[in-house]
Amino acid sequence: MTFRTLDDASDLAGKTALVRVDFNVPMEGGKVADDTRLRAALPTIQRLRDAGAKVALLAHFDRPKGKVVPEMSLRPVVQPLADLLGAPVRFADDCVGETARTAVAELDTGGVILLENVRFHGGEEKNDPAFAQQLAEVGDLYVNDAFSAAHRAHASTEGLARLLPAYAGESMRRELEALDAALGNPVKPVIGIVGGAKVSTKLDLLKNLVGRLDRLAIGGGMANTFLFAQGVDVGGSLAERDMADTAREILAEAEAKGCEILLPVDLVVATEVKPGAEVRTVKAGDALSDDDKILDAGPASVARLTAAIDASKTLIWNGPLGVFEVPPFDAATVATAKHVADRATSGALTAVGGGGDTVAALNHAGVADDMTFVSTAGGAFLEWMEGKALPGVEALRA
C-alpha cells in the first residue's frame, strides 16, 4: 500500500493534529445509542496523545446543509467519548475561525477537543478551497481516520489533506490494509459472495469483480434475476426481469475472464415471508406457481459454496444469500457465515466483509468477530469494491 500513515510522521510533540473521524453516530433521546464509531477512533487519538500532540477532532453529524442546526450539534458526543478515552474532551462551538483557534491554543499537550459539525458550513460539502484553508489554520498536520467518508471529496476529507502533511489514522490503515488483502493484492484463489435484492444497484460492483475474482457466488434477489435470465422459473419471486439481458452480459463477461459464477442449484420456496413459514426446497428449474417466492438458497447450494470456499485463500463478502432477517430464510447465510468464520479463525482464509446488510447478517450469525475484517463503511466500502478511486484515500498516497 502506498499511502502515508502515522509511522511516517515524526516529532509530533506540541503539534496540533486535525483528525477527521466519523462520529455520525445513532442518537436516541439526545444521547449516543451506539458508540462503535467512537471506539474506532480511540487508537488514533491515543497514539497522537502519547506522542505529545494536541488532538482536534473534525466530524460531521447528519445533514444540516450548510446551516447551524442545534439538534445536529456534536456536543452530545463529548462525554461518551471522554468516558471511553478515560480523559477529558473539550468542545468548541465552531470548527474554524477564532473560536476554534483559541480553543485549540488553550489545550494542554495531549489534550483532546471535538470541534463543532463541519457541515454547519456550506463550504464543507462543496470542498471549497477557502473553507479548507480555514480548517488548515487550526492545525499543523492532518490525519484521516474516517474511511467511511473517504468516498466524498469534501473539504475535511480531501481539500484539507492537500494543505497540510496528511496521514492515515489507525482505523483507516486497518481498513485499507484489509481491503488491499481482499481485492488489491489478494492471495489467490479469490472468491466473492455478492447478495442483496437488486442487480441494478450493484452493476458496477459485479462488472469489476468478474474481472478480479476466480469465483463469484451470487445470492438473494439478485440470484433470482440471473436464474430468470437463464430461463429458470422464478414464480412470484423478487426478480428484475427487465435486467435479464444485463445479467446474461455479466455471465458472458465472467466466462471470458475466467471467473466461475456460482448460482443457487436448489431453492427454498414459500408463499409468504413470515417467521416459521411453511417452506419447501426445490431444484433450480423446477416449475413454480405464481404464489411461490424464492427466499433462500438450499442446502445443496450451500454445500457447493462451502466447497468453493475451502478451495479459496481469500474471500470478500457483500450481501446476504436470502431474507436472513426472517427465519427460516436465514439458513444459507448463517451456515455459510459459520463456515467462513471457521476457515478464517483457523488461518486458512482471509475473509473480509462489508456493507450494511452484510454486517447485520454476520452479527445475526454470531461470527462478525471471527472474520479477518468487517468493514462498517457502507458506501465507501462498496465504491472500493467497484474499483473506484476514493478522494479521501487518494489524497493520502505517498
Rank of each mutant, 00 (worst) to 15 (best):
G347Q: 02
A92T: 03
V19T: 10
G196F: 03
L205T: 03
V194H: 09
D290A: 15
A331N: 12
L18F: 07
L141N: 12
A168T: 08
V302Q: 09
D245C: 02
P299Y: 06
N318A: 12
L315A: 15
L107Y: 05
A100C: 14
A311I: 07
V323D: 06
G235M: 10
N127T: 06
G219E: 04
A270P: 04
D62F: 00
F120S: 12
E71L: 14
Q134H: 07
L382I: 08
A150M: 11
T225V: 05
E260P: 01
L141T: 04
Q230Y: 01
L164N: 08
G86M: 04
H154T: 12
L12M: 10
S346A: 15
F373G: 11
A380G: 07
E158R: 13
M172P: 09
A344F: 01
M72N: 13
V77E: 00
R49H: 03
T157E: 14
T36H: 02
R162K: 15
A105K: 08
V279T: 15
L315R: 04
V78E: 05
R37A: 12
Q134T: 02
S237E: 06
G366M: 08
G111L: 02
V265N: 12
G52Q: 03
K54R: 13
E386H: 10
A166Q: 14
L18R: 05
D7E: 14
D292T: 11
E272Q: 06
V367C: 01
G86N: 00
G231F: 02
A398T: 15
L390T: 14
G231V: 10
F228Y: 12
V265G: 09
A360W: 01
L160R: 09
Y142W: 08
D296L: 05
K293R: 11
N208I: 04
V326C: 06
